[in-house]
Design a protein around this nucleic acid. Structure first.
Lengths: 220, 220
DNA sequence: TGTCGGAATGAATAATCATTCATTCTAGGT
DNA sequence: ACCTAGAATGAATGATTATTCATTCCGACA
């Protein structure tokens, strides 16, 4: 038996032979984070295993600990990624100096919040999976709070501008910003938990209605 | 050594000697559900163990499987209990024929939603822990959806009455009900995740503001 | 007071999982 | 073509955990 391997060299053997690939660290990290997101969405945060994540990524079990040290850390980094993506996108739109019309900026915000990127079931699942654990895990609270606070400030600033421009008396920007953020979160939650009874279109309309009542001169 | 036990018979020995107690099935079930709620709030749904729950309840590990067959079932029953308690309380207030004044009924609803019972961190933690898993667990979706749908109908019916009474033209009861529910969920989420930046008092004010904009004649 | 159905116990079991690390293999540099 | 740093692998390990069930013991009833 001169050839110990089960396969003749170079043979595809039906299922393609998996070749070990070496890739830069940053790429592998992202690959694992993406895989973690898919796993959480499909199986739930509480039943995600390292085997599951690495298998989904098409890698071996050892690799996750090589790049993330521990499962706990992988989960933290995944949350950080999702939070940054969500709040980052929002912040970009709200600051958007390339969009001078304020009403238009509100519409762009709605598009982002109920568009393809954010409301993919996958991302929402992950988002709320972490919220669910946040009550018991201060680390998660901290990660979310950091980017959340910044986004809240930007939103409040935008509302201040709008209130000034529209001369809406008796409206408190801070209170409205808190309300709008909460409304968006609640609608996303509805889309996740009762998708049969709440469509994306309807959710968007409800959010828009909130803005219309607050800023009638700016929204339609 | 004639006495193998560490304690002399009948001796309290500092810490009271734990005596086995036999109690009716219903009582034990509730005791275990309460314990599960505390455990989820303190440690997170994903790290709750049967040992933890039974220990917290002051019982042995076998007892949970005796009354609930499996951990999975215990978690399902716990969710059912929390969902029923929350929606049940809401429904009672909304139907409340003992409270003819509609504006007053809205205030009672606010009191319930931001009062002691519902917004205890414990209950909120549990609530969102399950929401977090709902994306991956249709069973949870189903349990919540059942009572949720009923509460949504009651809220819509209440809003229909209010709209008729106040003659609020151009207001859609269904859309407002969806918005209000989402807002409440979002505010509860905020209270849970960023308690430092959102007080209960403030959350209540934001919710009230929503109602005031929708039904100015009824709320303040 | 004695008896007994079944509630309660917890040590034992079997399964799952995160983490380690000796080994293998790749790709860029010479 | 050869060498080598370090990326990638996955079997092995040890820790946790849900679930079982032989045994213990309570308390209602006769």
């Amino acid at each position: 038996m001169s050839d110990a391997s089960g396969l003749v060299a170079g043979e595809p053997a039906g299922a393609a032979v998996k070749r070990r690939q070496i890739r830069p660290k940053a790429e592998r990290r992202q690959q694992l984070i993406d895989s973690t997101i898919r796993c959480i969405a499909q199986r739930g945060l509480s039943s995600v295993t390292m085997q599951m994540v690495t298998r989904e990524a098409g890698l071996s079990v050892g690799i996750a600990n090589l790049h993330f040290q521990s499962k706990d850390n992988l989960l933290k980094e995944t949350l950080r990624f999702v939070a940054d993506e969500y709040h980052g996108g929002q912040i970009e739109i709200m600051s958007g100096s390339d969009m001078p019309d304020l009403g238009q900026r509100l519409d762009a915000l709605l598009d982002f919040q109920f568009g393809r990127g954010v409301t993919q079931r996958q991302k929402m699942s992950v988002w709320f999976a972490y919220y669910g654990e946040a009550g018991a895990r201060p680390v998660y609270q901290k990660i979310v709070a950091t980017s959340d606070r910044f986004a809240a400030q930007k939103l409040e600033a935008l509302f201040v501008e709008i209130i000034k421009e529209g001369g809406y008396v008796g409206s408190d920007a801070r209170e409205l910003a808190i309300g709008y953020s909460a409304l968006i979160d609640g609608l996303h939650l509805g889309l996740l938990v009762t998708p049969r009874e709440l469509t994306k279109r309807c959710a968007r309309a409800v959010a828009r209605d909130f803005l219309r009542r607050a800023f009638p001169l700016h929204v339609r």
